[in-house]
Amino acid sequence: MIDAGLKKEIEGLMIKFPCIDSAILPSLTLIQERKGFISQGDMEELSRILKFSQARIFSVASFYSMLKLRPRGKYHLQVCTNISCSLLREKTLMEHLSRILGIGDGETTGDGLFSLEAVECLGSCGYAPAMMINSDHFENLGFDQVDRIIESLREKERAGGV
């Protein structure tokens, strides 16, 4: 469901650019920001709002790796697995996270809190290894520091955080 507020924001994007086509990608990004992922129903509604075919909307939504068409964990971990981030330690950050969370690439923990995704270069090569949690960047990560970050997020949830 795209609610009235979100619809209004999308309508703002429709007049922001010289050509309405340019509103498609920002609209999809916006829906994901608000709802965590983009559902089939969202794409159908967006197609009606922007007056583009559903096929056009889906062709964009399915092309870009940051756009998610399925639910993710509340904290979505995107871990760089490219060269510079893999060079510095025996084990990679991805392997470490996979072990402490008990999930693999593309999976979500049973409590829905964490999902893990191997991604390509995050532009942090000089500050490797790096990952993102939702839209926040973390760089120069040591494994003990990663453990503390994960634990602090779990703690926040236990305390009934937002």
Binding site: K16, F17, C19, D21, S22, A23, I24, L25, P26, L28, T29, F52, R56, S59, V60, F63, Y64, S65, M66, L67, V119, E120, C121
Partner: peptide, 27 residues
């Protein structure tokens, strides 16, 4: 000047793919 946000596609760094992306298409 407007800022336009990509969504995770390396090939969009190629100038014509970038333009396609800006036009609301796959890059």
């Amino acid at each position: 000047i407007d800022i336009y946000r990509g969504a995770g596609s390396y090939v969009c760094g190629e100038e014509t793919a970038l333009i396609e992306s800006l036009e609301g298409k796959a890059g």
